[in-house]
Simulated assay, not measured.
Amino acid sequence: MLVGYARVSTEDQKLDLQLDALKSAGCVKLFSDHVSGASKLKVGLEEALAYLRPGDTLVVWKLDRLGRTVKGLIELVDELHSRNVQFRSLTDSIDTSTSAGKFFFHVMAAMAEMERDLVRERTSAGLAAARARGRMGGRKPKMDSPRLKSAQHLISSGMTPKEVADSLGVSRATLYRGLSSLRR
């Protein structure tokens, strides 16, 4: 029996493409998750693994839907084989029921991990280059220098911190954080 598993990383992403492909491939039972690949807890995958019986095949739309590291993918496929369960990836044309499919699986898993590592390296290098030019990432602080000076003046004139925070359109916690950064 073919058992399908689909995963998307966020709630706003749709499973339709993967589920349609799995149904077209002949999957009788489908399981899915809306969770990041980095997450350890994948309830749908755990349910699929528990459902599989000897002679079944676990089918995914693409190899990266199953896991993020070569080690994790290999361990999972080895576990499946120890249970006499095969593995197929539709878009990667991997079928571990053949020797060539097993070899290709290992090569594709290594390539997928290398691609993720390269993206991570490029992102880190880009952020470092931006920092070297004086650019910082993240949100701009709500309490910039002019607003902090205004807040100090208002507090010293007798306004309560809540009134000052309300007049500046920030929370009291943001006001206190800003004022404490001036004292340092």
Rank of each mutant, 00 (worst) to 15 (best):
L73E: 00
F103V: 12
N84P: 00
T69V: 05
R122F: 08
T91K: 12
L127F: 13
L127P: 03
S99F: 01
G126Y: 05
V107F: 06
D95F: 06
S82A: 13
V119C: 06
T98G: 07
F105M: 05
R68A: 06
I74H: 08
V107M: 14
G126A: 13
L73D: 03
V85G: 05
T96L: 02
I74S: 09
E113V: 03
A125S: 12
F103S: 11
R116F: 00
T96W: 07
G101C: 06
G126R: 08
A109G: 00
V119P: 02
D78Y: 06
G126V: 09
V85A: 07
T91L: 14
A110V: 00
A112S: 13
R83N: 07
T69L: 02
I74Y: 06
L80W: 12
L127S: 03
G67F: 00
D78M: 05
R83T: 10
S124F: 12
F105N: 01
F105P: 00
D92H: 01
A110Q: 05
M114K: 09
D92W: 01
M111W: 09
M114G: 10
R131P: 11
V119A: 07
V70P: 00
S97W: 04
E115Q: 13
M114T: 11
F105H: 09
T98H: 09
D78C: 07
V77A: 07
M108P: 02
L80H: 08
A130L: 15
G67A: 13
T96D: 08
E115G: 04
E79R: 10
M111I: 15
E115D: 11
R120V: 14
M108F: 09
D78I: 06
L80F: 10
V107A: 04
G72K: 02
T69E: 10
E121T: 11
T69I: 02
D95L: 11
E121F: 02
E75Q: 11
D117M: 14
